[in-house]
Design a protein around this nucleic acid. Structure first.
Lengths: 346, 346
DNA sequence: TGTTAGCACTCGCTGTTGTTGAGTGCTAAC
DNA sequence: GTTAGCACTCAACAACAGCGAGTGCTAACA
């Protein structure tokens, strides 16, 4: 793959991203100056097709990039390392939106999703922190009625979960206080991941020996709040789905429906956002494990609190996506979000 | 408007809802037996058009119902009072879905929305309770770090809100305990609506005189959690948006986009669901105050806890909607939901 | 050997035209 | 008041031609 081929491929990708029309050799030679004629470009394009970087919708049309073509383009973007797009101009705006928001992580993520859509004109997704990665901070049990207890779990980075537990027997305030005090002492500083069934069994035994009392609520706490319920509690935020309809590739209502239906399934969203756990993750077309999404690309990044990765935010669009712009934006917003979250946790 | 006209109008509405094709006089006379010829029907249809119940897409097409036509049809459905559609067959399924769910209202509403879509094949919406209508039950302040406090508000019917407050000065556990104990005593049993700025000012004075201490956190509690933040805290659940794409009236991607964009605006969803506060509310086409929604109809009903209306659930579709089925379903689900919510609150 | 001009060919897109058929309104007879 | 008959309308569909952007191939050129 020589230099000229590379330049032509890049030009075709850029041109197609811009126009959404198959790119022909003449158009290309008119708009770009490669110092060779259309005929030469034609030969190069034919080669590029043989190599799998381009595709031809039909014989007498121009070429469009294949997934492999986009992939090469994107890799080169990433390797080049130069500033792709400059979003520092909106720093002010973004931070002001963030700080105006309640300092609850869900509110921040909701705003994040909105902003990603607003600035990219693509559909965007955020995912609330994987609770397993967070650190236990505080547990509080509040009696609500004779048989109902609200359990409040606070982990670091401002995540608060609550759960109503209905106990078979009446619990008095003192018992509840004992249990929560006990757990607060034992679980302090542990990551939620470390709080597994083994640990809880130990603690249960310990609790019985200490207070000579055993309660169902202890087990309920584990199954409903502390245990591996992370997936259940992880929220997905979605915005800008209607931007999908601006894309000519989704003019066909059936293609559109395939994608839109997929976007309604939380589990599926979770999967497309977590294909691997690289910090910056770009999935192009067929690379996507979810077949409903194989006409789409997803650019996502992790956000973190004090260096610990917590969740992902991302942008979803057709494979013909403005990768340069989108990658910069996602990276930029993920950085600010991480900064805000880390600061506020102090 | 004589009996025969009425029968013809009803037949046209039913036929059009079924086929989505303009209904002609011959089709009608073939499928229904009015005992008169197509020509007579033709005359009647012409009259119905003059009266504003029907419309003609173009000269040589059949007629379709106007909004007024649908309205008449729907009113008669409601007045007739007879069982429109029987959904009792799915009672089992619905209750089992509900009881399998965590007894948190948000989880229930999420499931409700999913079910409404699943059984109706239309887009559906739910709205979490208007916190103003709920009754204060408990407030808890948990110190998180030296300057951060988690405020937990529990109101009746299992609604728990939490909010992280960042105080300018360090609060000790005792002070927090005093404030929450004080407020719990004073606010017990009040509806959130009653907790207004006047009451809070009184309480603030009272608190100062009692403990000779004043804290910013008191005011923050009001502005961020107790005060008129109901709209902010009210969540909207949406599901089945992709069913919109099955409707031939939205084959035009621009019409579709208008509606889908509207569905992304929470404020707007709130408005369309709360056009008035009748228990069962049906808004047809142009009756809708939101112009983006004037190609749509919305059928919604309140759900309540122990007779107190809390929020709404609803179904949204094209004006050519299966009103009979949808009305029954919404009513049915709202009833079960109310029952579950009222029981669980005991 | 790589590059280029020329040329025949392909094929989706667009616009025209004709046909079909469901539907209408009107009129006159029942 | 009802109905049969009839001329008329008009969207939808299919067939067809012309256009134009694009291709691959060939032969000539540096």
């Amino acid at each position: 793959m020589d230099d000229r081929k590379w330049m032509i491929l890049e030009a075709i990708v850029r041109e197609y991203i811009l126009t959404a029309e198959p790119v022909g050799s003449r158009t290309l030679s008119r708009r770009y100056d490669f110092g060779v004629s259309a005929a030469t470009i034609r030969n190069e394009m034919s080669d590029l097709e043989d190599l799998g970087f381009l595709e031809q919708p039909h014989t007498s049309a121009g070429r469009i990039p294949s997934d492999k073509g986009y992939r090469t383009f994107v890799n080169s973007l990433l390797e080049s390392g130069r500033k792709l797009n400059d979003f520092t101009t909106i720093t002010q705006e973004v931070t002001s939106i963030y700080t105006s928001k309640t300092n609850q992580i869900h509110g921040l993520l909701e705003e994040t999703t909105k902003m990603l859509s607003k600035y990219s004109h693509y559909t965007s997704i955020s995912m609330s922190p994987d609770i397993q990665q967070t650190i236990f901070q505080h547990l509080q049990l509040i009696p609500l009625s004779s048989k109902q207890v609200v359990a409040i779990l606070v982990t670091d980075s401002g995540i608060v979960h609550n759960q109503i537990l209905t106990t078979p027997v009446t619990m008095d305030r003192k018992e509840l206080g004992q249990i929560s005090e006990f757990l607060n002492e034992k679980l302090q500083g542990k990551t939620m991941q470390e709080i597994d069934s083994n640990l809880m069994r130990e603690l249960e035994a310990d609790l019985i020996s200490r207070y000579n009392t055993l309660s169902d609520i202890f087990r309920m706490l584990y199954t409903d709040l502390l245990g591996d319920v992370s997936r259940k509690l992880q929220q997905v935020f979605l915005d800008g789905t209607s931007y999908m309809m601006d894309q000519p590739e989704f003019a066909d209502i059936n293609k559109l429906k395939t994608v839109m239906s997929a976007l309604e399934q939380r589990e599926l969203l979770y999967n497309i956002l977590n294909q691997n756990d690289q910090d910056m993750q770009i999935t192009i077309g067929q690379e996507n494990s979810q077949k409903e999404m194989q006409n789409c690309s997803i650019v996502s990044a992790t956000y973190s609190v004090k260096g610990r990765p917590m969740g992902r935010i991302g942008i979803l669009g057709p494979t013909r996506m403005e990768y340069g712009k989108v990658i910069s934006l996602v990276q930029f917003v993920a950085n600010i979000l991480s900064k805000i979250l880390s600061e506020q946790d102090e």
